[in-house]
């Protein structure tokens, strides 16, 4: 059975090594492609966009996901299982289906614009897709199910007698929320937020299909160098930088979780 472990390593490891090799193996063995990438304006611009989109999408998803998690945590176990389908079904839905749907919903003559036109009785064509708004809507829809699960777990881990104790002592719902629910679910919230942030750093499909041409993320830049420019050293260098950024956020999370266990 131990050979299976070795096969697993043999499948996963070589591509990683290959990408590192390619990144330093342009015309000669050097770090030049890294230097060129870091110096280029396109890269810097994309890096900034990536952080802004990933950050705002994560926070937005956390707010909306927290509402759902709170609602689920309040339900009796049986109804919660039923309602979970409303979260799990989007979780299992293909990202392409979501992108297609949002082009229909947000498009110039899409559902929202038609609805607004009907209400105000004039032709309204708000630009809601192929720009930052489209990307954020798509990413939020994609990330919410991913944050609901860890937040729900940490909400359910709160001993219900603490709520009873707080309310017997006279605390009103808002106070209970801020003094019990929020602080006690914080570890789960933090872990969830960090992991969806790392996940959104690497999104590719959503900015490609819902974002504007000038609003692309690092993943799209990798694809651009690989497919359009055919500069694999640069594509690899950007990949390694992206990997490094993701690792810088995810490794502390892993260490923190391990220390807690």
């Amino acid at each position: 059975m131990s050979p299976a472990v070795l096969i697993a390593v043999a499948i996963v490891l070589p591509p990683l090594l290959r990408i590192i090799y390619t990144s330093v193996h342009g015309p000669a063995l050097s770090l030049t492609s890294y230097a060129e990438v870091v110096k280029s304006n396109l890269f810097r611009e994309t890096l900034r966009t990536t952080f802004i989109i990933a950050g705002s999408a994560s926070v937005l998803s956390l707010l909306l996901g927290f509402i759902v998690a709170l609602h689920l945590a309040r339900q009796p176990a049986q109804r919660r299982t039923a309602l979970m389908v409303l979260v799990l079904l989007p979780f299992w839905t293909s990202i392409l289906v979501k992108c297609f749907a949002f082009t229909i919903i947000l498009g110039r003559d899409g559902i929202i614009n038609s609805l607004l036109s009907w209400i105000f009785d004039t032709r309204i064509q708000l630009p809601l897709v192929l720009n930052r708004i489209g990307t954020l809507v798509g990413m939020t829809n994609y990330l919410i199910p991913l944050i609901v699960l860890p937040v729900l777990a940490s909400l359910l881990a709160i001993d219900s007698t603490i709520y009873r104790a707080a309310s017997i002592m006279g605390a009103k719902p808002a106070r209970i929320f801020w003094t019990v629910t929020v602080p006690m679910s914080l570890p789960g919230v933090f872990a969830g937020l960090l992991s969806i942030f790392v996940m959104s750093l690497g999104t590719f499909i959503i900015p490609a299909l819902l974002g504007g041409r000038r609003d692309q993320m690092l993943s799209n830049l990798v694809d651009f160098y690989n497919r359009q420019v055919l500069d694999w050293a640069k594509a690899s260098s950007i990949s390694i930088v992206l990997f490094g950024i993701a690792a810088a956020f995810i490794i502390p999370l892993i260490l923190w979780r391990r220390r807690k266990a």
């Binding site: 990408i19 690989n226 594509a235 992206l242 990997f243």
Partner: peptide, 15 residues
């Protein structure tokens, strides 16, 4: 699981 999929994809493509 944690590496951005584009990175895995490019690595596999190059390999």
């Amino acid at each position: 699981i944690v590496i951005p999929t584009v990175v895995t994809g490019l690595g596999l493509y190059l390999y």
